[in-house]
């Protein structure tokens, strides 16, 4: 019995870990494009705006007689409310004189606040029973179904392929939007596509990383990767790699020590990679920069 359980746990844990790795690669790649376009903070608005949709989807499914915890249903709900949040941010920035950071802050907090209220309502309603929605805040692999892990892995791969297919127009839009428009690229549509990719990564990653920390998986891998290369293609590939390794390691540690939330472990892993990159990267790293500076000063002193 015990053996069967551990075997079962082993199989599920493997699936979950692979799902987290696929998600990490997708987040790293999409995050690279987001970072090139200098819209990193939009991901924060998107992720926090998922919460009310998540809660409403749960309530809707329960009121229809379901269990309320079906992952696809919850993903759909969060996608709708994140999409609404995104629309509000872009409406505020284009139709009013509100700067984008203020619009992001406003939308993020209002949507999140509304979501927290709904979560509290759910907790009161399901007094005694665990609704299990708390896991979506910080991510958890506990009690994850095999189908959940497969959904996450498939979602990650789909987002990754879409991002790679759009890599050229996305890069040209980020580098110089005016030039890209002249070459016939609809830059507004490209920005929309980029936001859709970020939204997809967020929704896919809700279960494992959690909505509070998914931002980190979109931002840290690309900035870590940037230390190593000046070539966009390499930065994208490296960022995907760093995201993948972080997802894999974080989920594996979390699965072997249940109770530890997955999201923070994934983020801490990527932060470790970031720190190493920042210090030790050959030309852009801090240490390399300091050595260059020192060498130059020595050479100057010798010359003087």
């Amino acid at each position: 019995m015990f053996e069967a359980l551990t075997l079962q746990l082993g199989y599920n844990a493997t699936l979950v870990t692979l799902g987290a790795a696929a998600l990490g690669v997708a987040a790293g790649v999409v995050g690279a494009f987001l970072n090139f376009r200098k819209r990193a903070l939009m991901s924060d608005a998107i992720s926090h705006a998922t919460l009310p949709g998540l809660a409403l989807a749960f309530l809707l499914m329960v009121s229809l007689g379901g269990e309320g915890r079906s992952l696809p249903g919850l993903m759909l709900g969060s996608a709708v409310s994140a999409g609404l949040g995104l629309w509000v941010v872009s409406w505020l920035t284009t139709r009013t004189r509100l700067p984008q950071d203020a619009a992001i802050g406003a939308v993020l907090s209002v949507f999140f606040g509304f979501g927290v209220v709904l979560m509290t309502v759910i907790q009161t309603l399901s007094a005694g029973r665990q609704a299990g929605l708390e896991g979506f805040l910080l991510g958890s692999t506990a009690g994850m179904l095999r189908s959940d892990a497969l959904t996450i892995a498939a979602g990650g791969v789909a987002v990754l392929l879409a991002a790679l297919a759009l890599r050229r127009p996305l890069l040209m839009t980020a580098f110089d939007a005016g030039y890209a428009r002249q070459r016939g690229i609809d830059t507004n549509r490209m920005d929309g596509a980029l936001m859709a990719l970020v939204l997809a990564v967020t929704v896919v990653g809700l279960k494992i990383v959690g909505l509070v920390l998914i931002v980190a998986l979109l931002i840290i891998p690309p900035v870590a990767a940037r230390f190593w290369s000046d070539n966009a293609a390499r930065v994208i590939a490296l960022s995907g790699g760093i995201g993948g390794v972080s997802g894999y390691a974080g989920a594996a540690i979390s699965a072997s020590a249940p109770g530890l939330p997955t999201g923070p472990l994934i983020v801490l892993t990527s932060a470790a990679v970031f720190t190493l990159s920042m210090l030790f990267a050959p030309t852009r790293g801090v240490i390399a920069g300091a050595l260059r500076h020192l060498k130059m000063r020595r050479a100057l002193q010798r010359g003087a």
Binding site: A174, F175, G178, Y179, R183, D230, N231, A232, V235
Partner: peptide, 19 residues
């Protein structure tokens, strides 16, 4: 109009002309 810290090499910029 360009972000000069963008991770792109000279040859990549020229290749954009062939988009």
């Amino acid at each position: 109009s360009v972000d000069w810290d963008f991770p792109t090499r000279v040859i990549d910029v020229v290749l954009m002309g062939m988009y």
